[in-house]
Computed example of a mutant assay.
Amino acid sequence: MIAIFSDTHSHRGHELTGEALAAAREADVVIHAGDFTSVAALEAFQNECDRFYAVHGNADSAAVSDRLPTSRVLEAGGVRFAVTHRRDGSETGLAMFGRAEAADVVVFGHSHRPTVIDAEDCLLLNPGSHAQPRGNRPGFAVLEPAVDGEGRLEGEIREPDGTLLESFDVTGTV
C-alpha cells in the first residue's frame, strides 16, 4: 500500500488519527507533499513510516526546508510519482511538471482540497489535509495494487475516519 499526505501544519507532531494513522503505519511507502510546518511534525512522520518520501512546502520552517527537496520523483507499485508542494500555473504547471518527469501521478498539496484530475498524460492528485482542511473535507490518499494484477493501482481519497471521498485508478508505465 502507498499512503499519501500533505499540509499537516503542526507544531506538535503528525496529527494523524484513525484510518490515516493506520495507513501511515501499514504502508509500504508514504509520500508527503509538504507543509509540515515544524521539525516536530516532520520527525513524527519519519518515526511512523518505514519508507518515507517528502518535499517541503511554502509554510515549512527553514529547518524543515533544509532537510527536504522542493520536488522529487520515485517509483512505487509500478507507478512513477512526481511530488511537489505546488507549481506556478496551477493544473497546467502541475501537468507540465509531470510530463517533464515522465510521471504517471503528480502528487501536490497547498490548496488543502482533496482533488483528483485526469490531465491526459498523468493524474494530478492532492490528498488534501488530514489535519488542517481549511473549509474543505479532511483527506489523505491510499493506493493499492488492483485485484486483477494488471499493473494498475486502485486509489481512494479518504477522511481520517475512513469515510470515502473519491476513488480513482492509476496505470503505471514503470
Rank of each mutant, 00 (worst) to 15 (best):
A3E: 12
A3G: 11
F5T: 06
D7H: 05
D7L: 06
T8P: 05
T8D: 04
H11D: 14
R12F: 13
G13I: 06
H14L: 03
H14K: 10
A23M: 13
A24L: 01
E26T: 10
E26L: 11
A27D: 11
I31K: 02
G34D: 01
A40K: 10
E43V: 13
E43I: 07
E43T: 07
Q46L: 12
D50Q: 12
F52L: 13
H56A: 00
H56G: 03
V64G: 14
S65P: 09
D66Y: 03
R67M: 15
S71D: 14
E75W: 00
G78E: 01
F81V: 08
D88F: 06
E91K: 04
A95M: 00
F97H: 00
F97W: 06
A100Y: 04
E101M: 15
D104C: 02
V107A: 15
V107G: 14
L123G: 04
L124P: 00
L125S: 06
P127S: 03
P127C: 06
H130I: 07
A131Y: 02
Q132V: 15
P133C: 13
P133G: 05
R134E: 12
N136V: 02
N136L: 03
P138Q: 12
P138V: 13
G139Y: 12
A141M: 11
L143W: 08
E144R: 15
E150V: 01
R152S: 08
R152L: 08
L153R: 02
E154Y: 00
G155K: 08
I157L: 15
R158H: 09
P160G: 03
L165H: 00
E166D: 07
F168E: 03
T171P: 01
G172N: 13
G172R: 01
G172E: 10
